[in-house]
Structures are given as structure tokens and as C-alpha cells.
């Protein structure tokens, strides 16, 4: 029951954090100079009266605190409001872009963590060897390069030079399969996923990898690892044991990684013309589409906060020492 008290306290923290975020976000976007009516309409093409009509229609003529109360009340009912720019419920605007982002980022995050944990464990196990030095450098290089650059290089090579993969987009507008394997379900989407996923993984694999490597190095010197050898555990079983005990830092990190993945990767989306949430977020800030911008950032923040909560609770599951105390 200590666990439930702990879970309850963490849940309360989470709720307060989110509440503060809502307020912060509301104020933040309104601090950017520029009026949504002006921004949306382009370079001052609307007469002032027409613009004023829009402001009334969108509730922007009311005092800020009234706007906030209306926004907060709607939010409590799960209503994110109407997008200024798209004039649709924000949820309808965000949902398809979020789906696209998840389609792209889910494999990126999963592969980055799996490869990172496996690679980091491998490097940690081979501490001091030449392979470890080379491996660490190889993993760090793509991290240091801009995503944009990596993406363009992959495109130049595999889309322009070899023409194995498409230049961008999520699927071909009208795809006509020419043979049986092109007729496989998801062939077209998979083909479009390869390069952006590869770019995303290259850019994000280094962090989980280095974290896992460091954690593994620490675990290796623990007494229980010596005893594991003494107990006659096989090399594989020993490595698995080390991995299992070194996983917690990566788990914490992956919560943040997943959260940011929900925000999409703007540059990745631009290079590969992927209609995801990242571009939507940037566009909505540019267009001063406060409802969409707030909702998108709030969602991203909420995911980070909730995943942190989840990780904290999962810690108890993965590390029984935390569960008790």
C-alpha cells in the first residue's frame, strides 16, 4: 500500500505539472508578436473591419483572462477548441498528423532503443578493446551531424543515385503495383518509411547506446556479476543479467525520447516531406494558430510527464528495491 500512496503522490505531482503547463503555454503563445487574424490572412489584405469581425468570431476581442477561463473550461471537458487556421476542431487537425508521426517515430524510437541497448551492452562488455573505441565513435558521428544533413546524404545515395527508395512523402498518391511483391500490403508505406526511419535512428541511437554502455560498465563491477560467474552462468546469461540490471537509466531516457517523438522531428519531416505533427506545430506557431499550437505542445508535454510517471512506477517493477522504499 506504500506503492499506492507513492503512485497517488506521483499522480498528484503530474496533475499539478500539467495544470501549470496549460497556463504557461496559454501565455507563452500569446507573447509572440502578431495577431492570428493578420498572420492567417497574409500581408494585410483584409480591411480592418473584416479583421475585427474575425477577432470577434474567434473570441480574440475578449480580455485575456476571459479567454483563458473559456479555454480551461473547454479543456476540462476534453474540448481543445477550434483551429483558427483550419476552422476545424483541433482534435481533427491533430489526429491525422499525429497518426503519421507515430507511424514514423514508433519504429525510430523502438529501433533506436533496441539497437542502443544491444549496442551499448556490447560496447560495455568489450570495455577497453579496439572494437569498443571504434563502435563508440561510429555511434557518435551521426549524432553530431545535423538530421537534415544525414537525411540529404541518404536521399542523395538511395533515392537519387540508386533510386531504391522514394524521395519523400508518406505514400505515393496513386500507386499502381507492378509485380507481386509490390502488391504486398504496406509495401508502399514501408518503402517510404525506410530512409526517414534510418535517418531518425542514426540521429537518435547514440544517446541510449552511450547511456547503456556507461550503465553496463558500472554493473559489470558489481559483486553479483562476480558471483554470477562463480555460479557458472554462461557468457550469454551473464550479459543478459548485466543488461537487465543496467536498463534503468535507458528506461528513464526513453520516456523523454518517446515524449519528444510525439512532437515529431521537424527537420526529419521537412527533409522527407512527412506530414507529421512537428511541421504542424511549427506552422501553427507561425500562423499564430494558438489552439493547435497549445494542443500540440500540451500533448507532447503531457506525454513526457505521463511517461515519466509511468517510468517511475515501472522502476518499482524493474527494481524491487524502489518498490519497497
Amino acid at each position: 500500500m506504500a506503492f499506492w500512496r507513492y503512485a497517488g503522490r506521483r499522480g498528484l505531482h503530474t496533475a499539478v505539472t500539467l495544470l501549470l503547463l496549460v497556463g504557461f503555454m496559454f501565455v507563452l503563445f500569446r507573447m509572440i508578436p502578431g495577431d492570428p487574424t493578420t498572420m492567417m490572412l497574409g500581408t494585410g489584405e483584409l480591411p480592418a473591419e473584416a479583421q475585427q469581425r474575425l477577432r470577434v468570431l474567434w473570441g480574440l476581442d475578449r480580455p485575456l483572462w476571459q479567454q483563458f477561463i473559456a479555454y480551461a473550461l473547454n479543456l476540462l471537458q476534453g474540448n481543445l477548441g477550434m483551429s483558427f487556421y483550419f476552422r476545424r476542431p483541433v482534435s481533427e487537425v491533430i489526429a491525422p498528423m499525429l497518426a503519421n508521426t507515430v507511424l514514423l517515430m514508433a519504429p525510430v524510437v523502438i529501433l533506436a532503443i533496441v539497437i542502443g541497448v544491444a549496442g551499448g551492452s556490447w560496447l560495455g562488455w568489450r570495455r577497453g578493446g579496439r572494437a569498443e573505441e571504434i563502435g563508440a565513435v561510429l555511434a557518435l558521428i551521426p549524432r553530431a551531424l545535423p538530421v537534415f544533413w544525414t537525411g540529404i546524404v541518404l536521399l542523395a545515395l538511395f533515392a537519387y543515385q540508386f533510386r531504391w527508395f522514394p524521395i519523400g512523402g508518406i505514400r505515393e498518391a496513386f500507386f499502381f503495383p507492378e509485380n507481386w511483391w509490390q502488391r504486398l500490403p504496406f509495401f508502399d508505406i514501408t518503402r517510404h518509411l525506410v530512409l526517414p526511419v534510418a535517418t531518425g535512428v542514426l540521429a537518435s541511437v547514440a544517446d541510449p547506446l552511450m547511456i547503456q554502455r556507461t550503465a553496463l560498465l558500472e554493473v559489470r563491477h558489481e559483486d553479483f556479476m562476480v558471483l554470477a560467474r562463480a555460479r557458472g552462468l554462461s557468457g550469454r546469461a551473464q550479459r543478459r543479467l548485466a543488461r537487465r540490471n543496467a536498463i534503468l537509466p535507458v528506461l528513464t531516457y526513453s520516456a523523454i525520447m518517446v515524449g519528444f517523438a510525439f512532437g515529431g522531428q521537424v527537420l526529419l519531416e521537412v527533409v522527407f516531406n512527412w506530414p507529421g505533427i512537428g511541421r504542424l506545430m511549427v506552422d501553427s506557431v507561425t500562423q499564430r494558430d494558438y489552439p493547435v499550437a497549445q494542443a500540440a505542445f500540451l500533448m507532447m508535454a503531457a506525454v513526457v510527464v505521463f511517461l515519466n510517471l509511468l517510468v517511475d512506477l515501472a522502476y518499482g517493477w524493474l527494481d524491487p528495491r524502489i518498490r519497497g522504499g
Partner: peptide
Amino acid sequence: PQSAQNALVPV
């Protein structure tokens, strides 16, 4: 082992 503290796998 010397230190029973950490000789058992904690997880």
C-alpha cells in the same frame, strides 16, 4: 563472497 550486500542480484 566477501560482501553479501550486493552479491545477490538485486532485481
